[in-house]
Write a protein that binds this DNA or RNA. Structure first.
Lengths: 221, 221
DNA sequence: GCCGCGCCGATTGTTGACAATCATACGAGC
DNA sequence: GCTCGTATGATTGTCAACAATCGGCGCGGC
């Protein structure tokens, strides 16, 4: 990204942004279980900041939909119902399908390179048989996929959806595909991009999402 | 929505939420032109609140992507480049196309009823020849469309994108379709849903977005 | 004349304290 | 014994003051 000699403006993110990132990560990994109340005083003490910046950070997560606020009562981590799981994966399908189409009609070469690297990481994680590492690599892959679309709005939306995806997985950790299967599905995606087979790619990403829904929620409902 | 006898929890929105809604609306209608700095002291005085709640509200809009923050310098309304216009409409395409598919495989009847009403409003706005009213009705139509999908995440994302859409239109007000054309396009969408012709519906929503891009940005770039 | 340096007003970032509201526990009354 | 009313503790919502940083202006030096 940042080539040598390419002087970029120094990254100066606000305190609220930093705290929001930490909280987001904590929610994602299940440190705060769904439904948990986030007490302001305690959190502020942990981050060693005042309640002001902390509240600003939490408002960001409320806007993102990760926290639900009840006035005069506090902020709570959302809990995901079966219908939420469907919503999340269908929204991901919307985002990632369009990302795929943009990649196909855009800079396909770069996408293949970046996704191949993400795939390697996924393979390595699969061999380690570490569920968490696999999820990390899985998430990184899809983040890269959307990033390759070059559409910042899709990217932003995908980030939130991937956090929610991770919350689903943390809650229903038993339902997760075998490493081989996981790798195979993602390799197929890269291959389809590499081959320029858009029809196949769309079909793959659709089944990828729809099967995930069936795996995570009672298929009957 | 709220049937008689259906006792829902009373709506108690936070101050930050209220302020955020007002600011969002102001940005949408161009009250704050793109690039404008939002001074905290002045705004806080206008809303008759302290800077605390105001800052919380603004952090929401930053997360939403409507405001861009430069540390120790202030918050500014984003300005939309040509590439942003493309991004917004392509993201809308992602959201609305999936919404269409969900409607077709879901509660199509309700969608037709609600969209027919939205279409009536659009027709009325078209007859009034009031650009602003037309945009309002246009926006409401698409909001309804996504709402009919029943997917809260798609709904949330669409809201932000529609605000940005409105910003585009405010900036390039000359490029807006004739009332008849606008109504016709939307009527075709409703008809396709009513007829159950998914192929046609998807095709319509795609051209609806892609043509908008061509209309708003130099087609060459 | 031009460049670098330091001061100054203004704005943002942060904090601690105060007011308002809610949940819980306890006791009076029926 | 159960219900309602009340007191209390804790938490959230809000505010005004303080600290830190930035942009602009004027001065001195080269």
């Amino acid at each position: 990204m940042s080539e040598l000699g390419e002087l970029e403006p120094v990254a100066r993110q606000s305190t609220a942004e930093l705290i929001a990132a930490q909280l987001r990560s904590a929610i994602m990994y299940g440190v705060f279980a769904p439904g948990t109340q986030l007490g302001e005083a305690e959190l502020a003490a942990r981050f060693a900041v005042s309640r002001g910046p902390l509240r600003e950070a939490m408002q960001r997560l409320v806007q993102e939909g990760l926290l639900r606020g009840e006035r005069h009562r506090g902020l709570f981590v959302i809990d995901l119902s079966a219908s939420d799981v469907r919503d999340v994966y269908l929204a991901r399908l919307a985002i990632e399908r369009t990302s795929c189409q943009l990649i196909m009609s855009g800079n396909r070469g770069e996408a293949v390179v970046r996704l191949a690297e993400a795939l390697d990481n996924l393979v390595a994680a699969g061999q380690s048989r570490d569920r968490n590492a696999m999820s990390d690599a899985d998430q990184a892959f899809h983040q890269t996929l959307v990033s390759c679309s070059g559409n910042t709005r899709l990217e932003r939306m995908a980030q939130t959806l991937l956090v929610e995806t991770r919350m689903c997985l943390a809650a229903l950790q038993e339902h997760y595909p075998e490493p081989d299967e996981l790798v195979a599905e993602h390799r197929a995606l890269v291959d389809a991009i590499s081959d320029g087979d858009e029809q196949q790619l769309i079909s793959l990403i659709e089944s990828h999402m729809l099967e995930s829904i069936d795996r995570l929620v009672p298929p009957s409902s």
